[in-house]
Design a protein around this nucleic acid. Structure first.
Lengths: 245, 245
DNA sequence: AAGTGGTCTAGACCACCTT
DNA sequence: AGGTGGTCTAGACCACTTC
């Protein structure tokens, strides 16, 4: 990691500065709640204008690394708030964070005409097809959840079972194959009771409580790309969220 | 709502402009995905510099009202993404949004020494007191949740039952009496089963499924201010979240 | 080529906090 | 008073999209 700004680099200066400051923070050189150099000091240190410096700081504030206090300075946020929200939305990453080994059994990858409710949520014209993916999600080898995804792509013929088995995460496929960046999601959570099929697949008794998550995912242009429904075993799963602003 | 910028107003120009643009959007004058005037047009329309205009637009992007596309323009986000995240954290506002009349029965407002787990979460020294508030939350007059809050304040002798009954919302009290602005929260959700007391208070059968929410709230300086635990009736409540970035 | 947003400069003055 | 962030100006050139 460089510690100077290269004016000829394709990376914008404010972005280069943000990376430099971020490195200081994550490396622990600047402890939580300590002040970083004042904006006018950073101006002389890095020979860039204050506007550009403020842009870099704004980035790190948005990312949860810094906060400002008028008249006092700019300070490092406590470590525990430096988590990224989107880490949540990937089941695999979520499991790894909890120290649980993620796994999956892929039950179905098919091109279908979706139910009208799904069609409406994904803002699709009638008869448009989507990819349906059904999976059993495993934690340390045991079933934790049942997941059904509906994905809207221009050419739906392009996510295969092999893709999923290779990369594991749907979000990685969307980013790497289609340059679709998951940017926002709307989600509801509620309690339901397991029916016969669900109970069988999850290895629990019918009538056992489940946590039902339904999520609509949007890309960087706020277009809906995926509707996903996950049924979690109530006794095995706790849901974590971070709310901002 | 004014439609011009007053340079002598105490409200900053970029903030005034953001309010003007936001009004156009929420009033429906600018439909979703339509382009707003280009930045250089806004410069001449409102006689303010482009930097200031970009600050206003940045605000509205952060709030979910607009998005940019390089080389194309700045566009209005689809309406459904224009919700504020923090609206969630207030039970009363949440209920109003769903068309349900909120209510509460205040069972306890007391100054206590908290259990060590709560003390640790709120980053308090031993023997420090907090305010505990127990409430039954009502929707259209019927119980839907049991809520217990622990609030850490410098002088804990300052939230009364009268405050709560008058303003209804704890967040309003924090803002108006203490200038504490709820800025971030960490939350977990899980399924549990009602015990005898809980069942009685909620008017359900023991063993019925409940949604347990536990939330740690941080102020604008990322200091913990409240730990709150809410048990929702599983059959009456659906939880809504918006995830960003 | 023309229009759009993306980045950047070198200033200025104001508002708030600390000493 | 001096230092900090907050707001603002009037430009400049670059990168991307559309025609």
């Amino acid at each position: 990691m460089s510690t100077t700004i290269d004016p000829y680099n394709v990376i914008p200066k404010y972005h280069q500065l943000a990376l430099i400051l971020k490195a200081q923070i994550v490396d622990g050189n600047w402890p939580p709640r300590s002040a970083i150099p004042a904006e006018r000091q950073l101006e002389t240190i890095y020979s860039i204008s204050r506007t550009t410096i403020r842009e870099a700081i704004n980035l790190l504030i948005q990312q949860g690394y810094l906060y400002r206090e008028h008249g006092r300075g700019t300070f490092v946020s406590p470590q525990k708030l430096q988590k990224k929200i989107m880490e949540l939305t990937s089941f695999s990453e979520d499991m790894v964070k909890r120290g649980i080994r993620p796994g999956q059994i892929i039950r179905k990858v098919e091109i279908i005409t979706p139910p009208t409710r799904i069609q409406r949520l994904l803002e699709l014209p009638p008869n448009n097809t989507v990819i349906e993916i059904d999976r059993i999600r495993l934690g340390d080898g045991k079933p934790i959840g049942l997941q059904t995804s509906y994905i809207a792509l221009q050419n739906p013929n392009t996510i295969t079972k092999a893709d999923l088995e290779e990369l594991g995460s749907l979000y990685k496929i969307l980013e790497q194959k289609f340059h679709i960046i998951p940017s926002e999601a709307e989600e509801t959570l509620e309690v339901t009771l397991a029916d016969l099929d669900e109970a069988k697949l999850l290895g629990i008794l019918p009538g056992a409580p489940l946590l039902l998550s339904q999520r609509l995912l949007f890309d960087q242009n706020r277009k809906p790309v995926e509707f996903v429904r996950i049924l979690y075993r109530g006794d095995k799963y706790q849901y974590y969220i971070r709310l901002v602003r």
